[in-house]
C-alpha cells in the first residue's frame, strides 16, 4: 500500500474532473437576530431548559452559594473540578469559607490535575464535574467550551452531572457571530465544544432517555 501514490492519483482525478466549472450562486445565509443582554439570557434559559438543562441565573458573586445549595440538594459525594481554572479558586474558597463545620454535606472536591492515564479510575467514579465556559450562543441555546490543561476535555463528559458556569456577558447571538468576533479561524484549540444539554438518545422507539453515555444531568449557572 502506498498512500502517497494514492494521493497523487486521487488529486489528479479531482483536478481533471472539470469541477472548477461548477457554478456557485450568490446566496448569503440569513443572520440571527441581534438580542440585548436580557433577551440573550432569557433565550438561553428557555432553549436549554426545554431540553432538560437546569438553568439558574445568579448574581455574579453569589454563584458558589448556588453551587453549594445544589451539591447538598443532589447529594453529590465527589465533585471534579480544575483548581487552576478561572472558577477553581472560587470553588475552593466557598468550600472552606464559614469555618469548621460549614462543609457539612458538601461533596469532596477532587482536582483533575493528572494525565488521564493515571486518573481514569478516579475519573469514572465522580458524581459531578464543574467547568467554566468560553461563552454561549443564544440562537440555538448552547454553552461553548474550549477545554484547557486546567479544565480537561473529559471534565464535562464523564461525570454524571455537568455544571457549567457561564458569564452573561459572554453570550453571543449565534455561533457565526461568536466565531467572527473571536476570530476562531485565526487559531482553533485542540478541542472546541458546543453543549446544549445532557447526553440523550431516542434510538429505541423514539423514547427520549437522558444520560446514555455522557452526563445524565446538566446545570448551567449564568452569572449575571
Amino acid at each position: 500500500m502506498n498512500s502517497q501514490a494514492s494521493r497523487e492519483r486521487i488529486l489528479a482525478r479531482l483536478r481533471s474532473s472539470g469541477t472548477e466549472q461548477t457554478t456557485v450562486p450568490v446566496a448569503p445565509a440569513p443572520e440571527a437576530p441581534s438580542l440585548d443582554r436580557e433577551d440573550k439570557i432569557a433565550r438561553m434559559t428557555e432553549l436549554m431548559g426545554a431540553i432538560r438543562t437546569e438553568v439558574h441565573v445568579v448574581a455574579a458573586d453569589d454563584w458558589p452559594n448556588k453551587l453549594k445549595e445544589l451539591a447538598r440538594e443532589k447529594g453529590w459525594k465527589r465533585l471534579l473540578y480544575g483548581p487552576d481554572s478561572p472558577i477553581g479558586p472560587d470553588v475552593e474558597a466557598a468550600w472552606t469559607a464559614g469555618g469548621e463545620d460549614h462543609g457539612d454535606g458538601l461533596p469532596k472536591l477532587i482536582p483533575y490535575t493528572e494525565p488521564v492515564e493515571r486518573f481514569k479510575e478516579n475519573l469514572f467514579g465522580m458524581d459531578a464535574g464543574i467547568t467554566s465556559c468560553r461563552g454561549g450562543v443564544a440562537d440555538t441555546g448552547a454553552v461553548v467550551l474550549w477545554p484547557t490543561p486546567e479544565e480537561p476535555r473529559l471534565l464535562s463528559l464523564v461525570p454524571p452531572v455537568h455544571v457549567a458556569v457561564l458569564d452573561a456577558d459572554t453570550i453571543h447571538d449565534s455561533l457565526a457571530e461568536m466565531m467572527a468576533v473571536e476570530n476562531w479561524a485565526g487559531g482553533m484549540p485542540t478541542n472546541a465544544l458546543l453543549i446544549s444539554g445532557p447526553s440523550k438518545t431516542a434510538d429505541i422507539e423514539f423514547t427520549l432517555v437522558f444520560g446514555v453515555h455522557g452526563p445524565k444531568e446538566m446545570v448551567v449557572l449564568i452569572r449575571k
Partner: peptide
C-alpha cells in the same frame, strides 16, 4: 433539532500540558 447535544470540533491531538485527549 435546533442543535445537537454536542458539537465536537477537533483540531489536534493532545498538546503539551493537556491532561486528556
Amino acid at each position: 433539532q435546533l442543535i445537537t447535544t454536542y458539537v465536537n470540533m477537533i483540531t489536534s491531538p493532545r498538546r503539551q500540558g493537556e491532561k486528556d485527549g
